[in-house]
């Protein structure tokens, strides 16, 4: 049989069309699927709230580079802002480290969705980039000192000290109450004490307290502080 171009082409139309439709539909699907995925990832809620210290630092940097004469930002301000940024990074890093094992476990048990884990991994990646960026900036701002190597050490101490001082403040806040409570009691006690001074020498001034009443249970114990001076 003689080779007939036309009839061969005619015979190939069907398989070719088949292939084109197949590949076309697959690639369309893959394109759409990827785009949806990317959109989903982009719309994922960020793990952390906006990084304000970072924004402050970058805004100041922007101000400096735009350099209007009256709002010149000195480098020392930038250094302070960078240090604050590093402190916030440390706080986030601590959070990430604390959350990771729990989150992994929850994911294994199926208690949380994939999306949560995705958000978390996204945050982790961002964190890495952020740390690298801070080190670079630090080295640029204090080159003689190689600040990049120590900035996170300093920031770590700052984060610890701040967390710890907050606890101290909580306790310190009770001081006024404690002081007043004792002053009131001291007044009551000393009034009673003066009267009983010759009476029961061994009795401590604290014995007029209600809590002691329960323990000693003495029938002669006064029922209230008010009664004592009247005795």
């Amino acid at each position: 049989m003689e080779f007939d171009l036309l009839s061969t082409a005619k015979g190939l139309v069907l398989p070719l069309a088949y292939l084109i439709i197949l590949v076309g539909s697959l690639s369309t699907f893959s394109y759409l699927y990827r785009r949806r995925k990317a959109m989903q990832a982009a719309s994922l809620q960020p793990w952390f709230p906006p990084h304000t210290s970072r924004n402050v630092y970058l805004t100041l940097l922007e101000l400096q580079s735009s350099d209007e004469k009256n709002t010149k930002v000195p480098d020392s301000v930038l250094r302070a802002a960078l240090l604050r940024r590093a402190v916030e990074d440390i706080q986030r890093l601590i959070q990430i480290r604390a959350q990771k094992p729990a989150l992994t476990q929850l994911l294994q048990r199926g208690a949380v969705g994939d999306q949560l884990m995705q958000r978390f991994q996204f945050a982790e990646k961002e964190m890495e980039a952020e740390l690298r960026d801070v080190v670079q900036e630090a080295n640029a701002l204090a080159p003689q000192q190689n600040w990049g190597q120590t900035i996170f050490q300093s920031a770590g101490e700052i984060a610890h000290t701040e967390a710890f001082k907050k606890k101290l403040d909580d306790i310190e806040a009770t001081r006024a109450d404690e002081r007043e409570r004792w002053e009131v009691k001291r007044k009551n006690v000393s009034e009673g004490f003066l009267k009983e001074l010759d009476g029961v020498a061994t009795k401590k001034p604290g014995s007029s307290d209600d809590e002691v009443l329960v323990e000693s249970g003495g029938p002669d114990a006064p029922l209230g502080k008010g009664k004592k001076p009247a005795k």
């Binding site: 304000t52 402050v56 020392s76 301000v77 250094r79 204090a142 600040w147 120590t150």
Partner: peptide, 29 residues
């Protein structure tokens, strides 16, 4: 909303200014 944060920043700045290190970056702990 930024006031508290900027207060901290400014006090950090004042602290840094008292340093005698070159560039007035905090020295390692």
């Amino acid at each position: 909303s930024l006031t508290a944060q900027l207060d901290v920043l400014n006090s950090t700045h004042r602290g840094l200014l008292q340093l005698s290190t070159p560039n007035q970056a905090p020295p390692p702990p």
